[in-house]
């Protein structure tokens, strides 16, 4: 792990609420993390966890309410949009809507190449073909003149990745890049994302997803978000093998796992959805769904604390019951 390329410090985003009685919605609540050179960090959570809001703030689409995003060289991201676009590029979720259907692949890629790599004509075309080779759309000359409707979902997502690379960014933010794709092509797209690290100047990646299983494949470190707060943070390996927070356990248990089918699999016990407009909680936001919740959880916000060599967790109960008895599920120990 290298030096920290990008530091996110106490990032907070509040949106005004539609109904005035509730005041405002806190989408992201004092989130801090660092992105080091050479690493892929996964941000995991359900709809409404704030993961996409963080992506929008990092890429300059949204402005933060408080906190800051600081680059290694001291540049403050939110104050220099042009610099941001050069340094951070985004891979979107839906390759069916993120490519302009009337433009050819070549045209889609020529524009960022000419704009950010400052070259023209034959030279730009050569670089576009290089990009196409890099995302394994070969022969490049064949794909150069195709339009999105002629491509499969996986091929389109490769074009979207090439477009992000065209700006020669230092950081790529991939927001659910495989969730719209067939399971059968996800593996190859994840491999491709892993392989673009270190190429075209890409030094780090933020992988945003609700799927812990794919995070294990792509990411070095994992941040688990719940309603805008980080509830667990650790290496991908440790989080997948020894999840400490009950919410992380819930995410892990939700992954389809045919080998643990029927009788063997523990049914998800933590019912209740991530609903908007819930009553204001003074304590842990997960308490209403948590089988381990006790008085203190409802009163106090558990701080994010180091609980093992590899991880941090924000849970009053994580220390004993979950860490020591790795095999015991939240349900067994709670119900």
């Amino acid at each position: 792990m290298g030096r920290s390329l990008l530091s996110v410090e106490n990032l907070t985003k509040r949106y005004p609420s539609r109904s005035s009685s509730e005041g405002e919605v806190v989408a992201v609540d004092r989130v801090s993390f660092e992105l080091h050179r050479g690493e892929v960090v996964a941000l995991i959570g359900e709809s409404g966890s704030g993961k996409s809001t963080i992506a929008k703030i990092l890429t300059g689409v949204e402005q933060l309410t408080s906190g800051r995003v600081l680059w290694e060289d001291g540049a403050v991201a939110s104050k220099a949009p042009r610099l941001l676009r050069q340094r951070i590029q985004m891979v979107f979720q839906d390759p069916f809507s993120s490519l302009n259907p009337v433009n050819t692949v070549g045209y889609t890629l020529m524009r960022p190449v000419m704009n950010y790599q400052r070259c023209n004509g034959a030279e730009a075309e050569r670089r576009v073909k290089e990009l196409l080779d890099q995302v394994q759309l070969s022969p490049a000359s064949l794909y150069f003149n195709k339009r999105p409707f002629e491509l499969s979902g996986g091929q389109r997502q490769r074009v979207v990745i090439a477009r992000a690379l065209a700006a020669k960014p230092q950081v790529i933010v991939a927001d659910e890049p495989v969730s719209m794709l067939d399971v059968s092509v996800r593996a190859e797209i994840l491999r491709l994302l892993r392989s673009v690290m270190g190429q075209q100047g890409v030094q780090a990646m933020l992988y945003i997803t609700h799927d812990l299983a794919t995070a294990e494949i792509l990411a070095d470190r994992v941040l688990v978000l719940y309603k805008g707060r980080i509830v667990e943070h650790g290496t991908a390996k440790s989080i997948l093998r020894r999840p400490m927070h009950p919410y992380t356990r819930l995410l892990l248990e939700s992954i389809p796992n045919p080998r643990a089918r029927r009788g063997n699999r523990v049914p998800v016990s933590l019912r209740g959805e991530n609903r908007e407009g819930e009553l204001r909680l003074t304590g842990c936001l997960f308490a209403p769904r948590c089988p381990l919740a006790h008085d203190r959880c409802w009163r106090e916000v558990p701080p994010l604390e180091a609980r093992s060599d590899e991880g941090y967790v924000a849970c009053f109960n994580a220390s004993q019951s979950l860490v020591q008895t790795g095999a015991v599920t939240a349900r067994d120990s709670g119900a």
Partner: peptide
Amino acid sequence: LMRSLPVPGSDA
């Protein structure tokens, strides 16, 4: 298809 399933904890 079976090989393309990401099963948690299995070898990537």
